[in-house]
Structure formats: structure tokens, C-alpha cells
């Protein structure tokens, strides 16, 4: 009986937690936001993850194209071809890289998308281009660390 209660409590706790998580790289801190998990550096590089339903049900190619078209429509300029990636937890996905000019500021914006039959895991990263490029290995590692929760 006691075991059952403990198990139920554990399940409830897990269900209340974020559905996707990231590991914060050195020099980054977890910050609040409308994401499942978000980490940021003091200089304004932010990396965040969230899970959305795979609705309408579609595959990775479909969502890659949908994201790319929407971002281009918003003025994002791709500067690399979308690349296949694999998360640390083994999920296959695709990584899209853009430049976005916000007034005089040049931003980098990366979005990795992983599609399962029920859910889509999105991992976004953005920051001032110079700072972002200098921290690229850290950012890439943190993006790859994104994982689906229960």
C-alpha cells in the first residue's frame, strides 16, 4: 500500500514537471519564461525548449518546412542548409539556422525540431551574433541536451 502511494506521488510530481528539459551550460542560468525550460547567459543568449502536439499529424520534413516558411515570412534569413541532428537522448531531428536583423542588431537564431508520432520537441537558441558565435560550442551542446519528459 505504502509503495503504491509513493509511486502515485512520484507520478503526480513527474506529471506536474516540465515536459522537456535542458542542461544549462557553464555560465548560463535557468530563467522563467513561457517555455518548458529556458536557460540564459548574462549577455543575453537564450536557449529554450518546449513540447507541442504533433497536430496536424506530420513528419519531420513537413514541420521543418512549415517552420522554415514561417520564419522566412517573418524576415529571418537562413544562412545554412537545414542539417540532420541527433539529441543526446537519441532523437533524430533537424536544425535550422538563421540570421535576423532587429534594427541595427544582428541576431543568430537556431531552432532544432524533433518530431515523434504524438509530440514535437522544439529547441530554440538566440543571441547577439558575435556573442552567439563565440559561445557556439556551448549553445550547440545545450541544444543537443534537450530531452522529452514524461
Amino acid at each position: 500500500m505504502f509503495r503504491k502511494i509513493v509511486l502515485s506521488l512520484a507520478l503526480v510530481t513527474a506529471a506536474c514537471g516540465p515536459v522537456s528539459k535542458l542542461s544549462a551550460p557553464d555560465g548560463f542560468a535557468h530563467v522563467e519564461g513561457e517555455y518548458d525550460d529556458r536557460v540564459a547567459s548574462a549577455s543575453g543568449i537564450a536557449i529554450a525548449t518546449r513540447v507541442v502536439p504533433n497536430e496536424p499529424k506530420a513528419n519531420l520534413d513537413f514541420w521543418t518546412q512549415a517552420i522554415d516558411l514561417r520564419l522566412r515570412q517573418k524576415g529571418y534569413e537562413p544562412y545554412e542548409q537545414p542539417q540532420d541532428v541527433k539529441s543526446d537522448s537519441g532523437l533524430p531531428g533537424r536544425s535550422l539556422h538563421y540570421v535576423y536583423f532587429d534594427g541595427t542588431r544582428k541576431n543568430r537564431y537556431f531552432v532544432d525540431v524533433y518530431a515523434t508520432s504524438r509530440r514535437i520537441l522544439l529547441v530554440e537558441a538566440a543571441g547577439d551574433a558575435t556573442d552567439f558565435d563565440a559561445n557556439l560550442p556551448k549553445v550547440a551542446a545545450a541544444m543537443r541536451s534537450a530531452r522529452l519528459g514524461s
Binding site: 497536430e55 516558411l69 514561417r70 520564419l71 535576423y100 530554440e124
Partner: peptide, 20 residues
């Protein structure tokens, strides 16, 4: 390009502004 309207509101929330 022509863009199909998808009932996926999260597509509109992608980007630098919201993230940073």
C-alpha cells in the same frame, strides 16, 4: 512562397523576440 494556414499557433511564437 504560398503558406498553408496550419492550426499550430506555436509557429507564430517562434523567434528571437519571445525567446530573448
Amino acid at each position: 512562397p504560398r503558406i498553408m494556414h496550419l492550426h499550430a499557433g506555436w509557429l507564430d511564437n517562434l523567434g528571437v523576440d519571445k525567446l530573448v
